[in-house]
Every structure is written in structure tokens, then in C-alpha cells.
Design a protein around this nucleic acid. Structure first.
Lengths: 141, 141
DNA sequence: GTGATTGCAAATCTTTTGCACTAAA
DNA sequence: TTTAGTGCAAAAGATTTGCAATCAC
């Protein structure tokens, strides 16, 4: 399991992504990948790093997040205009989006079946199918 | 049909939304609703208005778009972090998102069936289900 | 060493806001 | 005349960029 040799594992993960295991990337990877599935914004992760006594600049957090996405270690979830969420669960799955507090919750991929997926337009291929179930408190409005 | 008395119709639509039919709102509503289903950004609509010799400020475009959304005349579609699209089709349907050029295309609601929709978390109700099929050119990457 | 990475501050981009002016009812 | 709506310029919030200093190999 990852818990057994967490430090070593994170180094391997970063090396596999063809990135240098710098202090900053290691710390961010540990925060992201060593506590189960997470959905974080750049600013949240930045704050966590500072709290954990790891000085990192926000620009470096953005760099790392995008590099991790490019390497397939993270997935960017778009639910809110003007703010990106990064999801450590890169397997096929979907999301509840809680409009009241901006929280994301995973829905296992096999819990939703999309039937009759239309053919993509000629010349194009499907990159991903995102299903977002927007929920809010029952009594609201 | 809407084509028969376009001007009068747009006035009625705006009045029904409990908004005053100002020159700006009328012009924006005509651009939006008198040429079939559309997906526009605030800036696009602003440019169209200026091109059509209708001086409007960008702030007013944003105001109008949000008021139209609140009135149920438009739907906001979130596919891109940092930019909102507004969809004149407010019926139940989904979208292709063309990652190459940022275009949105409608998918009729009955072309996709979401099976086994999970129960929303306790105390919450489903507001909307968004299905976004992200497509890109086949040869890309 | 040398090429990648970082941090900072400035820049960019979209959207929102405050407020005096104008227009609709 | 009363209240809503508009335009402008400034502000806000998220993200990106340029570049000198620093670090990994």
C-alpha cells in the first residue's frame, strides 16, 4: 500500500511523470495523494502547504497542478466559472456538485450508465464524458 | 411564430421577466432569441451588439445575461474554467464541447438516458444534471 | 556546469461593483 | 417624480507570465 513507503512512492510517481522530484513537488504530491480521493483548488492546496510548513509560491502550485494533470495524475473538474477543482481520482467516475458550499463528491463510474451516447461529430473523438449532478439544500428557494 | 412579430414578442418576453424593455435589453434579446439556438459568451454578445450599431456597455451585457438566466430565458453552461457560456435552449438537453475551438453543440435531451441516477445526499435535491461530452479532433495528440 | 524549477511581482483575463447619470413607468 | 437601468472606470478574483535566482542531475 501507499501508506507503507509514502515518501518513496511519491518520488516514483513524480519521476514517472518525467518531472524532477523537487521539495515543492514532493510536498504537494504528498498532500494530494496520501490521503485518499481529494478535490482541491489551487488556493486550498497552497494554504495546506503553508500550514504544513512547506513554503511554496502559488505560481508553483499552479505549475505543479497542471503538470500533474498533463501526466494523468490529476483530473481537472469544471463546475464553476472562475475556479478550477483538481481531483485525485482519475478513474472513470462522475460528480455531485453541492451548489451551496461548492463541495464536490465522487460518484463511482458504474453507478451511472449513459445510454445511447450520440456519435461524436465527424472527424472528432470523445475525450471524456462528464456527468455533473448539481444538488442544493431541499428547502432552498 | 416568433418570426412574424419579432419586435413585439421580445418586448413581451422581457415584460414577462418583470424587466423594463429598454433599448439595450431589447437589442440583446433580439440577438439572442431571434436566430434559433445559440451559445454565446458575454464578450461575443457585446461584439455582436456593437456590430449591429447598438451601443451597449459590457457591464450591461453581463447584467442582462444574468437577469435572463434568473428569469429562465437562458441557461449558463460551465465547460471552461474562466469563461461562461449562455445557452438560449433552456429545455432539457446536453452538450458536446469541442475542445479545439471552444464550440458548444446541443444534444437533444432524449438522446441520452442517464440510468441509475444515484440518490442525492440527504437533505439535498437535484437541481440539474449536466452531461458534457468533450470531443477533439481525431488526429490530435 | 547546464538545464529545469522556483518565486516574485507584474500582467492578463473575465466578471463584478460603486456611483452619477439617464430613461421607463 | 419615482424607481429601475445604464455606462464608466475602478476593483476584484483566478490564473499566467517574464525573468533572475536556485536547485537537481
Amino acid at each position: 500500500m501507499m501508506e507503507a513507503r509514502p515518501y518513496a512512492n511519491v518520488i516514483e510517481v513524480i519521476r514517472a511523470a518525467r518531472l524532477r522530484p523537487t521539495r515543492q513537488r514532493l510536498a504537494l504530491a504528498r498532500l494530494l495523494f496520501e490521503s485518499g480521493d481529494r478535490h482541491v483548488t489551487a488556493e486550498q492546496l497552497h494554504n495546506e502547504a503553508l500550514t504544513a510548513q512547506v513554503p511554496v509560491s502559488l505560481a508553483t502550485v499552479y505549475n505543479a497542478l497542471h503538470q500533474f494533470v498533463a501526466a494523468g495524475l490529476l483530473r481537472e473538474v469544471v463546475v464553476n466559472p472562475g475556479r478550477s477543482y483538481f481531483d485525485t481520482n482519475v478513474s472513470d467516475h462522475h460528480h455531485f456538485f453541492h451548489e451551496d458550499d461548492g463541495q464536490l463528491t465522487d460518484i463511482a463510474g458504474d453507478r451511472i450508465e449513459v445510454k445511447d451516447l450520440p456519435k461524436p461529430p465527424p472527424g472528432t473523438a470523445v475525450r471524456r464524458v462528464d456527468v455533473i449532478i448539481r444538488v442544493a439544500q431541499k428547502d432552498k428557494q
